[in-house]
C-alpha cells in the first residue's frame, strides 16, 4: 500500500523517523544483541571481558532439572489460564449478546477485572485465599491439608492461576463481545426463522463465525501468560513455596538479578525469545488475513 501523493524533502522524512529508530536501537536491538552475546559467552572470573563458550550455557540450562520444571509449569499455567479465561469470557459474552435487560450494566462490570492492576489483584487474592484470614480460613484452620497455599505448592499454583484468569477473563470478554456484535443481525434472524434455537445458533452460527477471534485470543493469551505472570507470581508467592510457582520469566529474573548469573539468564532469555517469536509468527499468519486497508 503506497501513497500517491508524498512530500519531496526526503531528509525531513528521515528526521521524523530518527527518534524512534534511536530508541528502538538503544532499548530493543542492543539489549537483544547483548542477550545473544551473553548467551554464548561467559564472564571471566578475574575480569577482562567475556570468553566464547559456544553452546555451553545452553547445555547447562537444559541439563538443569529446575529449568525443565519451570518450562512445564509455564506450559501448565499458559494452558489452564487460557482455557479458564477464554471459557468464562466467551460464556459471559454470549450471555450479554442475547440483548436482555440490564445488559449494559453487566457489560461495564465485566470489563473491570482487566482494569485492575495485576499486582493489586494478586494482593487481593492472596488475602482472599490466605489460610489465616481469608474466605477459606475456616477450612484451612480445621483441615490444613485441604487448603494451605503458603505450604502446599499445588494450592499455591491454583491460586496464581485463578488470579491470572480472573483478570484476563475481562480482556477475553471484550474481544468476544466485539466479535459477536460484528455478526450481522440478519444472519441470526434468518436462522431463527428456520427454527434454530438460541443454543443451536450459538453452537452452529455464532461460535463458528468468531473462530478468527478465538484463534487470535488463544495465541495472545499464551504469549501474554509468559510475560504478564511475573507481577502476580512475585506478589502472591515469590515463586514458592519451594519454587512450586516459579515460571520462566520469574526464573530469568531470579537467576539474573538474585543469582547474578547473567550468562545463564541470557541463555534462558534466548530460549524464551524463540518460543515467543514462534508464537508471534503463528499469530501473524492468522491475523494477516483479517487486516484490511480500505
Amino acid at each position: 500500500m503506497e501513497k500517491r501523493a508524498t512530500f519531496s524533502k526526503l531528509w525531513l522524512g528521515m528526521l521524523f523517523v530518527l527518534p524512534q529508530m534511536l530508541l528502538v536501537f538503544t532499548f530493543f536491538y542492543w539489549p537483544t544483541g547483548a542477550a545473544l552475546y551473553w548467551a554464548f559467552t561467559l564472564e571471566r572470573p578475574w575480569g577482562g571481558g567475556n570468553e566464547w563458550v559456544g553452546l555451553d550455557n545452553f547445555r547447562q540450562v537444559f541439563a538443569d532439572r529446575a529449568y525443565w520444571a519451570s518450562i512445564t509449569r509455564s506450559l501448565i499455567f499458559a494452558g489452564t489460564t487460557t482455557a479458564l479465561s477464554m471459557g468464562s469470557g466467551l460464556l459471559l459474552a454470549l450471555a450479554c449478546d442475547r440483548g436482555l435487560k440490564f445488559r449494559k450494566a453487566f457489560q461495564t462490570l465485566y470489563v473491570w477485572p482487566y482494569a485492575v492492576v495485576a499486582p493489586a489483584a494478586a494482593l487481593a487474592f492472596r488475602f482472599i485465599f490466605a489460610p489465616e484470614a481469608g474466605l477459606f480460613s475456616l477450612i484451612a484452620k480445621s483441615h490444613p491439608e485441604v487448603w494451605n497455599p503458603t505450604q502446599n505448592g499445588y494450592h499455591a499454583m491454583a491460586m496464581v492461576i485463578f488470579c491470572y484468569s480472573w483478570k484476563y477473563a475481562g480482556l477475553c470478554f471484550i474481544f468476544f463481545l466485539a466479535a459477536l456484535q460484528a455478526i450481522p443481525r440478519s444472519v441470526i434472524e434468518a436462522s431463527a426463522l428456520d427454527g434454530a434455537s438460541v443454543l443451536r445458533r450459538a453452537r452452529d452460527i455464532q461460535i463458528p463465525l468468531i473462530t478468527p477471534t478465538i484463534f487470535f485470543l488463544i495465541v495472545i493469551s499464551i504469549t501474554d501468560s509468559f510475560q504478564d505472570s511475573f507481577g502476580i507470581v512475585d506478589v502472591m508467592t515469590d515463586g514458592g513455596p519451594a519454587k512450586a510457582t516459579e515460571l520462566m520469566v520469574y526464573k530469568i529474573y531470579f537467576d539474573g538479578f538474585r543469582g547474578l548469573d547473567y550468562s545463564g539468564a541470557a541463555a534462558q532469555s534466548i530460549v524464551l525469545m524463540f518460543i515467543m517469536m514462534a508464537l508471534t509468527f503463528f499469530q501473524f499468519r492468522f491475523i494477516e488475513k483479517r487486516v484490511h486497508y480500505s
Partner: peptide, 28 residues
Amino acid sequence: YFRFPGRMLIFWLIFITLMLPLEVRIVP
C-alpha cells in the same frame, strides 16, 4: 508521507519489536 530509501527496512526493523516484550530481554 515520505519515500526515502530504506523505508521498508525501517518499517520492518520497527515491526520486529512487536515480537519480543520487555520482560524477555529484561537483564540486558
